[in-house]
Amino acid sequence: MVKTRQWLLAKKATDLPTYEGNNPNFKLTETELPDLKDDELLVKPIYLSNDPAQRGWISTEADPHRLYVPPVQEGKPMRARGLCEIIESKSSKHSKGDIVFANCGWSEDFVVPASECQPAPDLGNGLSRTLYLSAFGTTAMTAYFGLTEVANIKKEDIVVISGAAGATGSMCVQIAKKLVGCKRVIGIAGSDSKCKWVEKLGADVCLNYKSSSFAEDFRKKTTGPENFVDVYFDNVGGEILDLVLTRMARYGRIASCGAIANYNTTSDKATGLKNWFEVIQMRLQIKGFIVLDYMKDWPKATDILKNMLKEGKLEIEGGEHIVETKFEDIPKTWLMLFDGSNQGKLITALK
């Protein structure tokens, strides 16, 4: 048997999760892994993906009958997806030393079914394999399908993207402007420096939601029928969603991807909507989606994004926030998702 360390979910979270002090949500432990069976792999995570969706998997309010994946159970390793090296293989399809995608969790070593791992071969041209977690990863697929399939964006559209400096939002900006060629793309981000980067990616303008004049600035950019918003890609929910509802064009479309504004609070304290009547009077279409619904088309979308990169239409510089992290500090890096300190895709590089 192999001894390994793991971060377990000690108790589900009601607010911002903790990993230190009394009664933390995450607990570091040591355990023995079971011996490999046929068609299983022993993998060692190299890079971990950090995703806001993980917060929903550990919520006290998570109803397993309504989640798109099962919640993490207390006493079990925190779930995560990552790029892993195969340490030992009992599969004819995978060899020792190969790099694969795997649901490896917050574990130094992990046993996974070979059927649930996908190869992550060298991308060539000096490109980092971490792009499998960013520009060609789940967040990129979320951006692509959320815009093209859920919101059905067109060239004549004015598009607003919240969380525009994040992993999904930054890809949305580039897909909307450089792939589809939308008339106007407005980003929303959390600092002036992030806004400058979003504009470099292709946004016509990006507004800092932490600015005291944000609401007024946003209204000015979206005043009058010719400037109303046709498509809103919503990563945050809360007060920003409520504001955008007042600026939507008639028959506007909203792709509802995330609600990070309320992830670390209970439902009775969450920010509600005051402008719901706008949905009725402007005949808006709001559609929630999960990117897993489009998995059969991921290879096609990946090819499109790779072609964008080849043609110089996809900016990858600055799109990854890779943090070298000791195993003991995995939760600390993950929590950066909620303080706004990351730009682009937040990736844990295990030392």
Rank of each mutant, 00 (worst) to 15 (best):
118 Q>S: 05
115 S>L: 05
99 I>R: 09
118 Q>G: 04
87 I>H: 06
102 A>D: 01
95 S>H: 12
116 E>L: 14
113 P>M: 03
127 L>D: 02
91 S>Y: 07
110 F>D: 04
123 L>W: 14
126 G>S: 08
112 V>W: 10
112 V>C: 10
97 G>F: 06
99 I>V: 12
105 G>Y: 13
94 H>C: 10
92 S>C: 07
124 G>H: 07
132 Y>A: 00
118 Q>N: 08
93 K>W: 10
111 V>D: 10
96 K>V: 02
87 I>F: 00
110 F>C: 13
126 G>V: 01
108 E>R: 12
87 I>S: 00
98 D>L: 08
131 L>S: 11
114 A>K: 10
130 T>P: 04
129 R>S: 14
124 G>P: 07
95 S>E: 12
90 K>A: 04
116 E>H: 12
90 K>I: 13
134 S>V: 04
106 W>M: 11
116 E>I: 09
108 E>C: 08
106 W>I: 07
128 S>W: 03
117 C>N: 12
131 L>M: 15
132 Y>S: 00
110 F>Y: 06
85 E>V: 09
121 P>K: 03
108 E>F: 03
113 P>S: 12
122 D>N: 03
123 L>E: 11
101 F>Y: 15
90 K>F: 10
110 F>V: 14
121 P>L: 13
98 D>I: 02
85 E>Y: 03
107 S>T: 14
117 C>K: 06
100 V>P: 11
110 F>W: 11
93 K>L: 13
133 L>A: 08
90 K>C: 06
119 P>I: 08
88 E>H: 05
105 G>I: 00
102 A>F: 01
112 V>T: 10
128 S>L: 00
111 V>F: 07
126 G>Q: 03
134 S>A: 13
128 S>F: 01
91 S>C: 06
126 G>C: 05
91 S>V: 15
88 E>W: 00
134 S>K: 06
106 W>Q: 04
111 V>Q: 11
95 S>C: 06
104 C>N: 09
105 G>F: 02
134 S>L: 01
